[in-house]
Write a protein that binds this DNA or RNA. Structure first.
Lengths: 339, 339
DNA sequence: GGCAAGGCTGTGAGCGCTAACATACAGTCT
DNA sequence: AGACTGTATGTTAGCGCTCACAGCCTTGCC
C-alpha cells in the first residue's frame, strides 16, 4: 500500500511499468521517434493518460542541454513601447515552440543588466533578447560574458551583436517632412531623454530633414517620455510666438503638449500643428486625433526571435544580423497647413 | 591539450579540482553552508572566479525539486491593466528571489489556459499566478489539474483558490456616489465586456450606488475597453438629452467618450460630467483632466506574490486567502455639478 | 538455407548537482 | 587516557531524463 500513500508524481519508469515496456520506449513515444510500433505507442499513451504523467522538462533540459526557454531582459514594461515589444517577442517565441522568462528592470544600469543576463544564463535559457533602448544598456552588454546567443532590440550598434530596431531616423524624417510639406517654415522638437537611442535617432532624423530643406534648426526641448514632461515642454512652447509646428518624440508627451496648448488657448492644429510618434491606441481619440508615426512592435518581436533562433540553430556563431523595421506615417488631424 | 579545445563550460568538479577540494565543498560554498573554513571558502571563490564558473541551476532544480521560478499566465499584456499587474508581480517576485516565466495569452479560452498551466508545470515552476480577469479564465481553472500552488489575480471566487483582487464594486461606488453628490439626478454607465469580472464588478457597484440613492438605473452601454468602443458609446450618449453624468468603466474608453462628445459639441464637464477608472498615466492630461478611480497594481502584484510564496512555503495546502486591494478615488476636472 | 538489412525494443551510463552519510581531526569533559 | 562533542571535509547515491549501443525479431534476397 506504500504506493498509495506515496504522493510523488509519476515518472517515466512508472509509465513504462504500467505499459509493460522500457522507459526508453516511453521516451521514444514522447519524442515522436519513428521506430515505435503503433500498438506499443497507444499502450504507452494510455498509461501516460491513466497516470496523469507529465514529463519532467528539468531533467530533460539537464541532458539535452537546452531548455526551449528564451530569456528577455527589458526595461519598465509598463511603458507602451516596451510592453508591446515584449508581447510581440513572447508571441513569436511561443509560436516557435519556445517559452519566455522575463526580467524587467526598474532602471537600466550595468549591474542590473549584468545580473539579469547572468541569472538567465544560469537558468539555462537557450538565448536572450535584450530590449536595450538606452545607451547604458548597450554599453552594459560589453561588460557581460555572453555564453549564448543574444540579440539586442532597439539597441543600436553593439559590439558585433545582432540588432533589431525600428528605423527611428526615417520615422522622424517622415514626421518632419510632412510638417514642412504642409508649408511650415520650420519644426520644433520635443525629444525623449537623450540617453535613449530612440530619442537620439528621432532628434537626428528631425534635424536632418530640417537641414536638407535648408531650414533653421530650433533648440529641441527634452522630456522623459511622460505626459507630464510633454506638458511642461508644451507650456514653454505655448509662450513662443513663432512656433507653428512641433514634432513630439512620443504620443504620450504629445498629449501633454496638447493639454498645455489647450490650457494656454493655443488651438491645434489651427495655430500649431503637432505630430507624435508610436501610435498608441489612444492617439486616434485625442482632440484632435493625433498625426503620428507608427512603430510595428509585432514585427520587431517576430524579427528578434527569428534572428535569435537562427543564431541558436547554427552551431558556429552565425553572422551578426541587422534588421531594420520601417515605421509607417499615420496622417490624422493634428497637423495642417499654417494660416 | 584536449582541455583547451574542449569548450564545455566548467562544472563544479573543475572548480573543485582547481581549488583542491571536493565538489561537495564547492557546493557548500555556493549555498552558504556555515561549516566551511573561511580560507577554504576564499580558495573556492577564487577558483570559481578564475574559471568563470556558473552554477547549473537546471541540475540543481532536478535534485532540489524547486526552481525558484514562478509562472505567470496573463492575457494581452499590451493593455495597461494587465501590463502593470504583471510588472508588479515580476518586481515582487524578484525581490523575493524568484524569477518569472510568462505566458501571455492572445485570447483566454480553456485550452489556452490549460496548455499554459501544463507547460509551466512541466517547466517545474514552484507556483503560478493566473491573471484571470475573465469569467472563462476562472472556469478554465476548474478543468486543470493543479499540482502546485496557484493564485488567481482579479479572479473572483474560483474553486477554493487564493484570490487577490481590487475591490471593483467599491471603486465603481465611489465614482457613482461622487457624481450623485455633485447633484446629478442619475449616472449613465459605459461598461467593459461583461464576461470580464472587473466589468461586472463595476456595473454592480454603479447599480448599487444608484439603487441605494433611490435613483433610476439607466440601461448601461457596453464597450470592449478600447478607446474606439468608448467613442461609439459616446456617440450614442451624445444624442440623448437627459444625460448629465457618465461613469465609464476604464480611462481608455473614457477618452473615446470624451472625443465623441467633443465632436458632437457636448462640453465636458459643463454639460456632461465624466468619471473613468484605472488612472492611466495619460488621464491627467486629457482635456479636461479625467476624474477617475485608481487601481494600485503594484499592491496587487505584491500581494499575489506574498500569498503565493506563503502557499509554497507551507508544506500542507494552506488556507486559501482572499486579499482585497482598495481602489482610490482621484478627483480631477471632468466632473462638476450640473448647471 | 543462410545471411544481410532493417525495424523495434531494452540496457547501461551519465548530464551536474545536492542530500545523507562517513570520516578526520580538533577541543572538551570526566 | 578515553569517550564525547562539534567542525570541516570527502564519498556515495541518486534526481528523471536522453544518448549510445546492444540485442532480438522479422523480412527479403541470392
Amino acid at each position: 500500500m506504500a504506493s498509495i500513500s506515496e504522493r510523488r508524481p509519476p515518472v517515466m519508469a512508472d509509465v513504462a511499468k504500467l505499459a509493460g515496456v522500457s522507459h526508453q520506449t516511453v521516451s521514444r513515444v514522447l519524442n515522436d521517434h519513428p521506430n515505435v510500433r503503433s500498438e506499443t505507442r497507444t499502450r504507452v499513451l494510455e498509461a501516460i493518460d491513466r497516470l496523469g504523467y507529465r514529463r519532467n522538462m528539468v531533467a530533460r533540459a539537464l541532458v539535452t542541454r537546452h531548455s526551449r526557454t528564451l530569456g528577455v531582459v527589458s526595461f519598465d514594461t509598463t511603458l507602451y513601447g516596451p510592453a508591446s515589444t515584449v508581447y510581440g517577442i513572447e508571441q513569436a517565441a511561443r509560436a516557435a515552440g519556445y517559452f519566455v522568462s522575463i526580467v524587467s528592470l526598474k532602471s537600466i544600469d550595468k549591474p542590473g543588466v549584468r545580473d539579469a543576463i547572468n541569472y538567465l544564463t544560469e537558468q539555462g535559457v537557450d538565448g536572450i533578447v535584450v530590449v536595450a533602448p538606452q545607451r547604458t544598456a548597450v554599453r552594459a552588454l560589453d561588460d557581460v560574458r555572453l555564453d549564448r546567443p543574444v540579440v539586442a532590440v532597439e539597441g543600436g550598434q553593439a559590439r558585433g551583436l545582432s540588432v533589431v530596431a525600428v528605423d527611428q531616423v526615417a520615422g522622424a524624417r517622415m514626421a518632419t517632412e510632412h510638417l514642412l510639406e504642409l508649408g511650415h517654415e520650420t519644426v520644433w522638437h520635443v525629444s525623449g531623454p537623450l540617453d535613449w537611442l530612440e530619442a537620439e535617432g528621432r532628434v537626428q532624423g528631425w534635424r536632418q530633414a530640417l537641414l536638407d530643406a535648408g531650414r533653421a534648426v530650433p533648440e529641441p526641448l527634452t522630456g522623459d517620455w511622460s505626459p507630464r514632461s510633454g506638458y511642461e515642454a508644451g507650456k514653454s512652447l505655448a509662450g513662443m510666438k513663432d512656433v507653428t509646428a512641433v514634432f513630439v518624440a512620443n504620443d504620450q508627451m504629445a498629449l501633454g503638449v496638447l493639454r498645455a496648448f489647450t490650457e494656454a488657448g493655443v488651438r491645434v492644429p489651427e495655430q500649431v500643428s503637432l505630430v507624435g510618434f508610436d501610435d498608441i491606441p489612444e492617439s486616434e481619440f485625442f482632440s484632435p486625433p493625433l498625426t503620428t508615426v507608427r512603430q510595428d512592435f509585432d514585427a520587431v518581436g517576430r524579427s528578434s526571435i527569428a534572428v535569435l533562433l537562427r543564431q541558436i540553430d547554427s552551431e558556429e556563431r552565425a553572422e551578426h544580423e541587422h534588421v531594420v523595421v520601417p515605421p509607417r506615417f499615420v496622417r490624422r488631424a493634428s497637423a495642417m497647413a499654417p494660416r
